[in-house]
Design a protein around this nucleic acid. Structure first.
Lengths: 367, 367
DNA sequence: TGAAAGGACCGTAACGGTTCAGAACCAATT
DNA sequence: AATTGGTTCTGAACCGTTACGGTCCTTTCA
């Protein structure tokens, strides 16, 4: 009702002051510093405000003057809705939201369509800082963020040296997982990984592409695998690595299928995420392969659904990652150098990994 | 590096214009309307900007001038992180995020701690509109939103008549579900519902409290149940209704326990959400009750986990709800009257509901 | 050759606040 | 009577931009 009554010029702090015959300062104080004026006058100001339909100081104008937006921006280069499909991303969001809430700060999800090169949304975002979560390191949106004169925290990204960073030791964690499989006797393996760059490549990964991957996380996980298996005498360049652009169980299944078609003799299928691993297990089942009897399957992340399936994986503290990113950003004072936080991971030995059945022999004669 | 070089007064559009010897308008045009100046000058402007470390027009100042924030606010009165735990809320968020993304608009999660009555965060939010999702109808944050002179869409809230609304027919859907159970022969039932008001009440619900519930959704679902069962001759005031403040499986379990302790003879346990229902099923199992052989259990929402469990429930299009809310908000033009959208629901008969075993007799003699 | 058209750029006036250094006033202290 | 201290309110500067309505100069065309 009040909404439709004052169709004329909306009231402003100035017009309210004029109406009351006081200064703008006084009206401002009525809202922001009640102790700066007498209670009676304050009441009169607030009453008149209500009568005139003045909704209180304009947030944008206030932000301009105070140089505080009261919000942090989150950049994730994906269809924004992707974040709400991926369990790990949801965990990260939750942690970040917690940190923001504690600080009474808003969280602005910045739309950054990876298809378009349109970085205007980054320029338009009125925020006090940015969190950048798992975008390719050559992403133009990331570049745009870095040019904004506000503190920034990158997460699951390479250390840029200039801004704060939160992450885990993807390489080391995957190395450890690989050591587990190697210890079990696996030498003939296949890999399914997430997208390595901005272009879609649903197929095998060349060594070049692997090396030049623009997604820090994937690059490091693969590199951890390569190191461990090379040390164990496996020729990494011969290991089939299937890449999938979309991150869902269907991709895991089709990636597993592609790898198994290429080399039906593999004894372990290593996936760079739990979601992919769960899909891979479906595909294994479809082919009549028993896990882990006929083939071992491993994941990465430690999501709930994987846990329920008894998946062997690396658990990473996704919620803590979000929270740490938020905290880092929100207390970004003038320190000497950017901070870099590595959170601990944990290798979870589930029931999807075991020694290779027919492989005992090969261990002695194989490559 | 560039980040730390210009510690002096940061460059502004005006200082850049002064440096170049052109007007501020021209610099502005260089960024916003390339066709309004010659390519050479534009290049010169942009180059000088880079040299001076000018990051482009300030988003807040621009917002003030253009009266566009490029973002919509989302209010959900809960620990903000709750939204990322509840599958239905996640679906809603995803839909809303999709709509925002399509429009190139940001989505600002407004921190609204239900504990504090602090509505400052609502006042501080620089947004072009609000979406309010499932908050109690007497929530001060909601009141604060309604006083802001921006378009608003409420979702899962009563129709205020003054702003757009998106929802489902909670009452009718639950009525239909109740009819299903009644048709199976159930007369002795128990209910577990989500919080009905802002105060914590983990216990049975009085008829008064039920009637005065401040959560529109819960009020209507209960009312649908009451109507159906009253029609079937059940004295609704005697039906045990356990309320739980927290919305998780543990609450479902403890609510179920409370109801079953009160009346071990119930043949059906109706929960107002799938999450609660899944918890209730755990409790039933703990007590050695087979579902649906010994007791029927029903939910509401149609979440994935419920589907996998074969839960009898009402499926509601949560993603569509979010998307619809976003669309409504983003094309809020000057229309005659506020719009109200009801989305369709679907009764899902799963394998958690069946006829009561020992109840056939009671149907004839019972109340 | 004169008029009309069009491109390139500019000056001014908002946009709606916050902040800080005082001014004005009054009561209490020296 | 002069000084001090406290409360209450004011004036003016400033935050960084874009909208609006020009001006000026060069072309184009009859």
């Amino acid at each position: 009702m009040a909404r439709s009554m004052h169709v004329r010029r909306p009231a402003t702090l100035a017009s309210l002051a004029a109406e009351l015959g006081v200064s703008r300062t006084t009206v401002s104080n009525a809202y922001n510093r009640p102790d700066q004026l007498s209670p009676e006058l304050r009441r009169r100001v607030l009453d008149t405000a209500r009568r005139l339909g003045y909704p209180g100081p304009d947030p944008v104008a206030r932000s301009l003057r105070t140089r505080k937006a009261g919000a942090v921006g989150l950049l994730l280069t994906e269809n924004l809705s992707y974040a709400f499909r991926d369990p790990a991303a949801i965990g990260f969001l939750e942690g970040l939201a917690l940190a923001c809430e504690d600080a009474g700060t808003g969280l602005l999800l910045v739309p950054a369509n990876p298809e378009r090169e349109d970085v205007a949304s980054v320029h338009r975002a009125g925020v006090d800082g940015f969190v950048v979560y798992s975008v390719p390191d050559d992403d133009p949106h990331l570049a745009a963020v870095l040019e904004r004169p506000v503190p920034t925290v990158v997460c699951d990204q390479p250390d840029l040296g200039t801004v704060d960073r939160v992450g885990i030791d993807d390489r080391g964690a995957m190395y450890e997982l690989a050591r587990h499989l190697i210890g079990l006797g696996h030498r003939r393996i296949g890999v399914v990984c997430m997208r390595l760059a901005r272009d879609r490549n649903d197929g095998f990964v060349t060594p070049d592409r692997q090396h030049a991957a623009h997604f820090h996380v994937q690059r490091n996980r693969l590199s951890g695998l390569a190191e461990a298996f090379s040390e164990a005498g496996v020729d990494w360049s011969q290991v089939p690595v299937a890449e999938r652009f979309d991150h869902n169980m269907a991709s895991g299944a089709s990636g597993a299928a592609q790898v198994l078609d290429r080399d039906p003799g593999i004894t372990a299928l290593i996936c760079t995420s739990d979601v992919l691993a769960l899909g891979a297990m479906n595909e294994a089942a479809r082919r009549g392969l028993r896990v882990p009897h006929d083939i071992s399957v491993t994941g990465f992340d430690g999501i709930r659904a994987g846990e329920e399936a008894g998946l062997t994986t690396v658990r990473q503290p996704v919620l803590e990652k979000g929270r740490a990113a938020g905290k880092l950003l929100l207390d970004a004072n003038e320190r000497t150098r950017p901070r870099s936080v590595n959170l601990a991971t944990e290798l979870i030995i589930g029931k999807t990994s075991a020694g290779p059945r027919g492989g005992a022999e090969e261990r002695w004669f194989g490559p």
